[in-house]
């Protein structure tokens, strides 16, 4: 019995090894926390074990089956979190607050907050296609990722992003925020 359990565990390790490596690599690169990534891996492992049960079936599962399992596992992890009203951890991208230092002077902090408010308001004034692209870009997505998500060509994405950023700067300038703002 224990031997059979070990074999199933080894089969799961083998099937999930490459997936786990990719999830960790892509996830951490995109700012997910370690617990997000581990929750997902654990859920996928549990689902494969429950659905396939034997080491032979697990080892024989096509990658497309693992793919479908991974996507539905991610959905379930998120549904459960929402049902428990858990607040998702923020993506761990370099925060502007750390750039200011731990105890920024009060006047600097006020300037920063005003600037953020103006950036937020200026963004909302952009036309929808440019606004979404600019928000993605400011969130750290590259042009290729944006093009892929929207199903656009790279030149179309580049054009909308360039025009969107240009519009954003124009609107900020009209609000009195010049190129030298809070360098």
């Amino acid at each position: 019995m224990a031997e059979q359990s070990d074999q199933v565990s080894q089969a799961l390790d083998q099937v999930l090894a490459r997936f786990a490596e990719r999830v960790r690599y892509i996830g951490i690169r995109h700012g997910l926390t370690g617990s997000d990534v581990e929750d997902l891996l654990q859920e996928v492992r549990l689902r494969l074990w429950k659905a396939l049960e034997s080491d032979e079936k697990i080892l024989g599962a096509p990658a497309s089956y693992v793919h479908r399992t991974a996507v539905s596992a991610a959905l379930d992890v998120l549904r459960r979190r929402r049902a428990r009203r858990e607040t998702p951890a923020r993506l761990s991208r370099p925060s502007g607050l750390s750039v200011l230092g731990e105890s920024p002077a009060a006047d600097r902090m006020v300037e920063e907050m005003e600037l953020q408010d103006q950036v937020g308001r200026a963004l909302e004034q952009l036309i929808p296609a440019r606004r979404s692209v600019v928000k993605m870009y400011l969130s750290g997505y590259g042009r290729e990722e944006i093009a892929d998500l929207l199903g656009w060509t790279e030149p179309k994405t580049r054009n909308l992003l360039y025009r969107g950023l240009s519009d954003l700067r124009e609107k900020l300038t009209a609000m009195g925020i010049g190129p030298e703002a809070l360098q």
Binding site: F19, G27, H30, D36, L40, A63, V71, A74, A89
Partner: peptide
């Protein structure tokens, strides 16, 4: 700030396993 990490988790699951498939 709440939907963005959810979007990323779904995207990671889709990309990591989709590439392998």
């Amino acid at each position: 700030p709440f939907c963005q990490p959810e979007f990323e988790l779904l995207r990671v699951a889709e990309r990591a396993s989709g590439e392998q498939a």
